[in-house]
Design a binder for these strands. Structure first.
Length: 817
DNA sequence: AGCACGCCGACT
DNA sequence: GTCGGCGTGCTC
């Protein structure tokens, strides 16, 4: 007698034991179940429910000893053959489980939150009867009766406190008084922002929390703040008071506030955008279009670099190219960096493709994201535009994939699976025989290298839009400024230029590198700088809420009145945007300075609103971090100032030069987009640094020449790949021991490797401790090949299973930074 | 990682 | 004599 067996990638299987597990398909599901559908299966000794995805189905003589699939979670496959293949590819390349990859590929709205519940199967008396003999079981019965006979595992754990409820549950289950059920419910996830609204008159609310002000200070502070505001996002409440989500939740339970779903990213209305005729192209653009279109129609997949200086009209080429793809019945995808996905950009595309567009963005509300995903899958939308994760969008007949600003770091995921959208895009284009277009004014060194080597096709746009000259750039030596007694953030020259702009009624953009934008406090007496108790970083001061905060773990505390160590007076150090703003207001009294950084960008004051305010010309100066450098086209901006160019230059990673060059080039290009010629001022402590000089001249060619030589010399990408293995755990010695062991195992295995390699470490990570976990890393530089990936995968799994490594987690990352 | 099975000390 | 401590070993 034959039976159907499903190979399933299981969610609860961690990396070390991740493999396809065989499950019997019950007769009732035999006709319905297909590969790519998610299922609910029992897993582990406790047969707890786990979700999984069917990788394959096959006939087998007997299914002896196999467990059976509990239920199908989908009506239709959520991944096709290519999708499943890609998940397997991601596992090998990014050292994640197959299901981790699957989760990254599916929209959050489709994600099932699995809840284990304990359900009483007997009535009140019988249940009590059965629980006789175990105090804990009796307590559990009482708890469950209060909750109408059923309770979630989380609730029960909370109710039991430090005691483990598992034995009590087993006790009842064995006696047939209860059962464990796993329910799959579409989870909304915590991605969407919750809006807290005061649920009663403020006097009443305050009366409720005031008596316990001493014992529950956070509840008090949150309520107090909410009374003032009436409504605020839960995130903001936490930010300003230092509370965390449980506090808010408990206030909700007490009926003091209610939580409502709020859309983080308002779905941009694209219905009312008037259609536009196709853009006219100049000769260069036309040549690029024709070349790209030829590649797109070719039998074989290809990669092309569209290298065009800022303002050379890459977008027009994209639009024409997409139109031709649509005319042939294909579909296309445009990926942009996180910060570049603005309503303006969406409108440009909507003007040409209208309802054919689906927008996929990680901060879209889960429901809408799911809708857009479905529109793409059904073929209703044939142009997907989105950020990193949109690379997985279920488009059919994909024939063109555009990665704009391909050098941007936001294409690399910093969480499991640590994929790079460029790599995934490349893989996908090969799978589906599509053309991959990498667009950039400052391509990643690896990309340009491939283009020069003839691996990628290259198309170049050299002419700036309406033939505008590049801005005049001045480099200011801040050492010189210091010698002349100006220790402020704004040099004499920059101040004069700003002054000129003010009198002329023209606008100025000032950029502060994020790394330098943090502001710390330091004791004037003993020099102490308050540090995060859980992480090895200094706390940074946020004036918006008057607190010292940790950017790594979210810890925060009110700014102390005096030094906690010696009682001395605290001074502010570091040049933050706030500090520059103050300095500007001093120098130019009465002039409005718009500030844009992660502090000022909140639910109420979005990115877009600030930019709109600036665009309308109300404020003469816009000051901000990286976000001001990207894709802003303002007619009236004639001056760009880089307050401090050095910060990103002296990081200890090989991409520092490339990133600095790209950032400076982009921001300098922001000056003079309109009729008037622009100027730029770059302030730096290292005015002779080549990267800064090349960027000032917008000279990518020489920057590239120098950088590629350096990379060759140092054996960095593209000549080799970098694998970083990071171990983290609560005890430093254990983590270190784990790394040393890993290193030894690696060295042994690498000895037989038939290619060059170099192994560094263990060394503490740049931030050695995060959330009370110490982090050490090994760095292996060698050419990325299957052998190395398999070796590393094996070693990570091994480390995971090592008894000595309890509590330590190890992960691998390919070409991080 | 979880979770069960299994073998030793503090209580009814 | 049992409840419950945490030391090994497996997960279809």
């Amino acid at each position: 007698m034959g039976c159907v067996v499903a190979k399933v990638a299981v969610s609860k299987a961690v990396y070390a034991i991740d493999k396809p597990y065989d499950y019997l398909v019950p007769a009732a599901l035999e006709d319905r179940l297909r590969p790519g559908m998610r299922v609910l299966v029992p897993f582990g000794a406790g047969n707890r429910g786990s979700d999984g995805i069917v990788l394959a189905l096959h006939q087998q003589e007997s299914g002896g000893g196999l467990k059976a699939v509990t239920a199908a979670l989908d009506e239709e496959p959520v991944l096709d053959r290519h999708g499943l293949q890609m998940a397997l590819w991601m596992r090998e390349r990014y050292f994640c489980t197959v299901y981790d990859a699957v989760k990254a590929m599916l929209p959050a709205g489709l994600y099932y939150a699995l809840r284990d519940c304990v359900k009483l199967t007997a009535d009140r008396e019988v249940a009590y009867e059965a629980s006789q003999g175990s105090v804990a079981a009796t307590k559990l019965v009482e708890m469950l009766l209060v909750w109408d006979g059923q309770g979630e595992m989380e609730q029960i754990r909370a109710g039991f406190g430090p005691k483990d409820p598992a034995p009590a549950i087993r006790y009842l289950v064995e006696r047939g008084a209860a059962e464990i059920v796993t329910s799959a419910q579409r989870g909304v996830g915590d991605k969407t922002e919750k809006l807290a609204v005061l649920a009663m008159p403020s006097e009443e609310a305050m009366a409720l929390v005031t008596p316990r002000r001493k014992t529950a200070p956070l509840r008090y502070s949150v309520t107090e703040l909410l009374c003032q505001l009436g409504a605020a996002s839960a995130k903001e409440l936490c930010y300003f008071t230092g509370a965390s989500m449980p506090t808010i939740k408990s206030l909700e339970k007490s009926g003091i506030l209610t939580l409502e779903q709020q859309e983080v990213f308002r779905r941009v209305q694209l219905d009312d955008v008037p259609p536009k005729p196709l853009p006219q192209l100049n000769e260069e653009q036309q040549a690029a279009l024709e070349g790209l279109d030829r590649l797109c129609r070719a039998e074989k997949p290809a990669v092309a670099l569209l290298y065009g200086v800022t303002g050379s009209g890459k977008t027009q080429v994209y639009i024409r190219l997409i139109q031709q793809v649509l005319d042939r019945g294909g579909s296309a995808m445009v990926l942009v960096p996180e910060i570049a996905l603005t309503p303006q950009l969406l409108r440009v595309f909507a003007a040409h493709f209208g309802q054919e567009i689906a927008v996929l963005h990680s901060s879209l509300p889960a429901g809408e994201r799911y809708d857009e995903w479905k529109r793409a899958r059904s073929g209703k939308a044939r142009v997907v535009i989105g950020t990193r994760s949109a690379v997985f969008a279920p488009l059919r007949n994909l024939s063109l994939l555009i990665l704009d600003e391909e050098q941007e770091g936001s294409y690399k995921s910093e969480n499991t699976p640590r994929y790079h959208a460029r790599d995934v895009a490349k893989y996908r284009c090969v799978q589906e025989n599509a053309l991959l277009v990498l667009g950039s004014a400052t391509p990643a060194v690896e990309t340009m290298y491939s283009a020069r080597e003839g691996v990628y096709h290259q198309f170049t746009l050299t002419q700036r839009y309406n033939q505008k000259a590049l801005p005049q750039v001045h480099i200011v030596d801040l050492k010189e400024e210091l010698r002349e007694g100006n220790g402020g953030a704004i040099s004499g020259l920059l101040a004069r230029e700003i002054g000129d702009n003010l009198t002329r009624g023209e606008q100025t953009i000032l950029l502060l590198n994020r790394r330098g934008a943090s502001r710390m406090v330091s004791c004037g007496e003993c020099g102490e700088v308050p540090q995060c108790p859980r992480c090895s970083v200094k706390l940074t001061y946020h004036s918006a809420n008057g607190r010292l905060m940790c950017h790594y773990c979210g810890f925060s505390q009110p700014l102390p009145h005096a030094c906690p160590a010696c009682g001395g007076k605290l001074n502010f150090i570091g040049v933050g945007t706030q500090r520059v703003q103050e300095e500007l207001e001093e120098r130019f009294p009465g002039v409005e300075v718009l500030r844009m950084d992660s502090d000022t960008v909140t639910a109420a004051h979005s990115h877009e609103k600030i930019l709109e305010q600036f665009r309308s010309g109300k404020a003469p100066i816009l000051l901000g971090t990286q976000m001001v450098a990207k894709g802003l086209d303002f007619e009236n901006v004639t001056l760009v100032g880089v307050v401090l160019a050095d910060q990103s230059l002296f990081m200890d990673d090989f991409r520092a030069g490339e990133r600095t060059f790209s950032l400076l080039t982009q921001v300098v290009g922001r000056a003079g987009r309109g009729e008037k010629t622009g100027r730029a001022v770059i302030q730096t402590f290292t005015p002779d640094h080549d990267v800064i000089r090349f960027a000032a001249r917008q000279d990518y060619e020489h920057f590239y020449q120098q950088e590629i030589q350096l990379r060759r010399l140092r054996r960095e990408p593209p000549f080799r790949d970098v694998f970083v293995l990071t171990a983290s755990g609560p005890e430093e010695t254990g983590v270190l021991r784990c790394c040393v062991k890993l290193r030894q195992a690696l060295e042994g295995a690498l000895a037989h490797l038939n290619q060059e390699w170099e192994l560094l470490g263990p060394a503490p990570a740049a931030v050695a401790k995060v959330n009370n976990r110490y982090r050490y890393r090994l760095t292996l530089s060698t050419k990325n090949c299957r052998g190395v990936r398999e070796l590393l995968g094996r070693l990570i799994a091994q480390a995971h299973q090592d008894r000595e490594n309890r509590g330590i987690s190890v992960y691998g990352d390919l070409n991080p930074y």
